Amino acid sequence: MEVQGTVTEGFEAVREAFVRNFEARGDRGAAVAVYRDGRRVVDLWAGSRDADGPAAEGTAGGGSGAWRAGTAQVVRSATKGVAAAVPLLLHQRGLLDLEAPVGAYWPEFKAGGKEHVRVRDLLAHRAGVPALERGLSPAEAVDGVSGPRAVAAQAALWEPGTAHGYHAQTYSWLLSELVLRVTGVSLGSWLAEQVTGPLGLDFWIGLPDAEAGRVGRVAPVDPPERAGALKVRPRRNVSEAWADPHSLTRRAFAAIDPLPDENAPAYRAAELPASAGIGTARALAGFYAALIGDTEHGARLFDPATTALAGTELSAGADRVLVVNTRFGPGYMLHGPASPLLSPASFGHPGRGGSLAFADPEAGIGFGYVTNGLAKSVTADPRAQALVRAVGASL
Rank of each mutant, 00 (worst) to 15 (best):
A283M: 13
A274V: 06
E313Q: 09
Y332G: 02
I256P: 14
A283S: 15
S247Y: 07
L334C: 10
E262V: 12
A310I: 09
L334A: 08
S315C: 14
L314D: 10
L309Y: 02
R251S: 04
E240F: 13
A299H: 14
M333Q: 14
F328R: 05
T307Q: 15
P330L: 11
R282L: 01
L309D: 01
G286V: 15
R320P: 05
F287M: 11
L334S: 08
V238S: 07
G329R: 03
R282V: 03
D257P: 10
T306P: 05
I278T: 09
D319Y: 11
V323D: 09
G317D: 08
W242Y: 00
G336V: 05
F253A: 12
R300M: 06
P265Y: 01
S275G: 15
T249N: 10
A270I: 04
R300L: 06
G286S: 15
T306S: 06
S275I: 06
Y332H: 07
P304L: 11
S315E: 11
T306M: 02
G336N: 00
A255Q: 08
H335N: 13
A305D: 13
D261L: 11
P273L: 03
T326W: 07
S315H: 14
T295C: 13
A269D: 04
D319V: 15
P337A: 03
W242Q: 00
S239R: 06
L314R: 14
A316H: 12
E271V: 15
M333K: 04
I278Y: 02
A270R: 01
G298P: 10
I292D: 02
V323K: 04
L314H: 15
